[in-house]
């Protein structure tokens, strides 16, 4: 592919047929039709539909009737909503605080070249292979006070009624989420660390900076965009921890782990109140969009592409 061959005649042809080229380029639009069709029918229309359904009453089987603002008033007056909102944000923030430092350090650790680190990394990533349902079921068995980890390790403090006491269940949910998702973010940080130019460390060494200094002055700043990408995925992803919590606690005990997504499901498909459930869904969409925009702004305008990719 020599330049001489491709540029000279290429530009001549381009000049002659520039109008033709334009047409050719515009004609490509039809290639997007299949993807557009699926996206419009099963994503855009449902998105509009969820807003419309929030103004109706429907039990999931019978006819759909108009309900005006009734659902909105009843949901906004329901303390259950604020409980779910609070829990969603609590789990989001605590999960971020727990997972980010662990993932970052593990990412730096596994980016090292020692053999044993590579071997450890292979095992670290195992939770990525499991479905949320499998993880939740495994942990339920593991936490059995008599036949689980507590007895196995001889650590009686582990023998708690993890799923029966509200604050324990909440802590458990946060732990299991970390267990499941830290590997993913470790992988992201590992990739980020490997992108840092080696020359930066060489220069720092010549200047006599120690490892800790290097970590805070090179690794951490260089990982800025990785941190934003990972955090965006973590925060927006936390809105959809539905399946793990559903299988692990079912939202209980009481409503102590009933996050928004679960609240939506239980109102809609258990209590058969699709109208109020749609209100919750609209709130979820708004929170998701707001968080995405906020985090995107945090990353700066020029990084728009990668920020969006992080969603």
């Amino acid at each position: 592919m020599s330049n001489a061959v491709s540029t000279a005649p290429g530009s001549a042809v381009g000049f002659k047929n520039s109008k033709q080229t334009e047409q050719r380029k515009a004609a490509l639009a039809w290639l997007t039709i299949p993807a557009l069709f699926f996206f419009l029918v099963f994503a855009v229309i449902p998105l509009a539909g969820v807003l419309i359904l929030s103004f109706t009453s429907w039990d999931g089987i019978g006819a759909i009737g108009a309900a005006g603002l009734d659902n909105w008033f009843s949901v906004l007056a329901d303390p259950g909503l604020y409980n779910a909102l609070g829990l969603t944000f609590l789990i989001m923030i605590v999960s971020w605080l727990v997972q980010t430092p662990i993932s970052l350090l593990l990412g730096v650790f596994t980016a090292g070249s020692q053999r044993y680190r590579a071997a450890l990394a292979v095992l670290y990533f195992l939770p990525l292979l499991l479905s949320s349902a499998a993880v939740a079921i495994a942990f339920k068995a593991l936490l059995d006070p008599n036949f689980g980890l507590a007895t196995g390790l001889g650590l009686p403090f582990l023998a708690q009624d993890w799923l029966g006491v509200p604050h324990l269940a909440l802590g458990l949910v946060i732990f299991v989420i970390a267990w499941q998702f830290v590997p993913f973010h470790t992988l992201i940080y590992q990739g980020g660390v490997r992108q840092i130019p080696k020359s930066l460390y060489e220069a720092a060494q010549i200047d006599g900076a120690g490892t800790i200094k290097q970590f805070f002055h090179i690794t951490l700043p260089q990982l800025k965009y990785t941190i934003i990408t990972s955090s965006t995925l973590m925060v927006v992803g936390s809105l959809t921890y539905f399946d793990l919590i559903f299988v692990l606690t079912g939202g209980g005990p009481g409503n102590s782990t009933r996050i928004l997504a679960l609240d939506m499901y239980l109102r809609g498909f258990r209590a058969n109140l699709m109208g109020p459930a749609s209100v919750i869904a609209v709130i979820l969409v708004i929170i998701g969009l707001a968080l995405a925009l906020f985090l995107q702004r945090l990353g700066g305008k020029d990084k728009q592409g990668s920020q969006l990719e992080g969603l």
Binding site: F39, I45, I52, L239, T240, S278, A281, L284, V285, L311
Partner: peptide, 12 residues
Amino acid sequence: GLAIPLQATIIP
């Protein structure tokens, strides 16, 4: 579409 939690559209 990247920014929208699509699970929220489950009811429609």
